[in-house]
Amino acid sequence: MATPAPAQLLFLSCRLSAEALGTRVEVLQMEAVAGELRTAPADADTPDFVRVSQLNRQGKSLAQAMLPHPLRRSVEHVGDDHRTFQRSELVLPTAEFFVRLALRPDAVTIRIEESTGGKTALLTDLPIPPKS
């Protein structure tokens, strides 16, 4: 009988940059290590988000995490009448994000997508590094 693969975590840190042709991803750190998640992070409950998915060899999504979009910020401020509050949406030129994932044993690729304005765009696919 085969023994199950030891639990692994993936630490992924990226920088997103808003550019004329779309959002660019720069991987700052990606490391697979032995370990388990204590608690699963809650998915973002915002209309604009970044989805980080684990894919198997066939490209099927095995698990995902959704984070509030790092380049999008909603700010509340005093209105022009100085009596009411207004909400403004800001788009930052660059921002970083960090995610910790419980790696699925059959995952081979990490996919990063962004969803803004109801449209989803693929940003990058990254091979999962060997466990360090």
Score class of each variant (00 low, 15 high):
98 F>C: 09
117 G>Q: 06
117 G>Y: 04
10 L>A: 06
16 L>E: 05
95 A>K: 01
39 T>D: 14
30 M>H: 10
85 F>Q: 11
1 M>A: 13
69 H>Y: 01
3 T>P: 03
48 D>T: 00
53 S>F: 10
56 N>G: 09
22 G>K: 01
7 A>Q: 13
82 H>G: 04
79 G>Y: 07
128 I>V: 15
120 T>D: 05
124 T>Q: 09
58 Q>H: 11
116 T>M: 12
29 Q>F: 07
55 L>R: 07
19 E>H: 06
32 A>W: 03
58 Q>R: 08
17 S>E: 12
25 V>H: 00
45 D>A: 14
38 R>V: 13
68 P>H: 00
108 V>I: 13
104 R>A: 15
112 I>V: 13
62 L>V: 04
61 S>I: 15
116 T>H: 03
82 H>V: 09
58 Q>E: 13
65 A>I: 12
60 K>A: 15
110 I>P: 11
10 L>W: 05
88 S>V: 10
100 R>T: 15
17 S>P: 00
71 L>A: 04
61 S>T: 15
28 L>G: 04
126 L>A: 04
85 F>S: 11
117 G>E: 06
29 Q>D: 14
19 E>F: 00
120 T>H: 04
49 F>M: 02
24 R>C: 00
21 L>A: 15
10 L>M: 10
102 A>F: 05
31 E>F: 02
128 I>Q: 04
61 S>C: 15
65 A>K: 02
24 R>E: 00
109 T>Q: 14
9 L>Y: 07
61 S>R: 14
80 D>W: 08
36 E>T: 11
130 P>T: 02
67 L>F: 01
75 V>H: 06
2 A>K: 10
